[in-house]
Simulated scan of single mutants.
Amino acid sequence: MNFETFQQSIKATTPPENISLYLLAMWHDANGNWDKAHAMVDNLNDSTACWVHAYLHRKEGDNANANYWYRRANKKIPDMSLQQEWENIVKAIL
């Protein structure tokens, strides 16, 4: 799957089959279900999950918590829009 195909899938009522948990979290976030997206990565500790987790807390407006997760992901809080970061994360995962 490429970025354009994934982005188009957001218009569907159900996520694409056989995608990673990280992409599934990003899909739910893009569909306005922050809580479901957060629940998917909340108990994961790898760097990708930490990056998604950081992004979600940044989107929530909880910058202190976001900074904690960015550090866990070995990243700095980005100086870009949430939409651009969403795209960067999805492209990196794909």
Rank of each mutant, 00 (worst) to 15 (best):
I89G: 05
N33S: 13
T5Q: 13
W34F: 11
Y70V: 09
A92M: 14
F3P: 01
W27F: 06
N88I: 05
F3M: 01
K11V: 10
W69L: 01
R72N: 12
Y68A: 03
P15E: 09
I77C: 10
Y70A: 05
S20W: 13
R71E: 15
E17N: 14
P15M: 06
Y68C: 04
P15I: 03
P15L: 06
N2K: 06
T14H: 06
D42P: 02
A37V: 07
A12R: 10
N18G: 05
M40F: 14
K76A: 12
V41S: 13
Q84R: 10
P16K: 06
A37Y: 07
R71A: 14
E87W: 02
Y68V: 00
Y22D: 07
L82A: 11
A73M: 11
N33K: 15
N31R: 15
K59V: 03
S20Y: 13
Y55K: 05
I93C: 10
A66P: 07
N74P: 06
M40N: 10
G61R: 10
A64H: 09
D62Q: 07
T13L: 11
A66R: 04
V41M: 09
M40I: 15
Q84E: 15
P15W: 03
N74A: 08
L94C: 00
A39Q: 13
D62H: 09
N63H: 10
I93S: 05
M80W: 06
E60L: 09
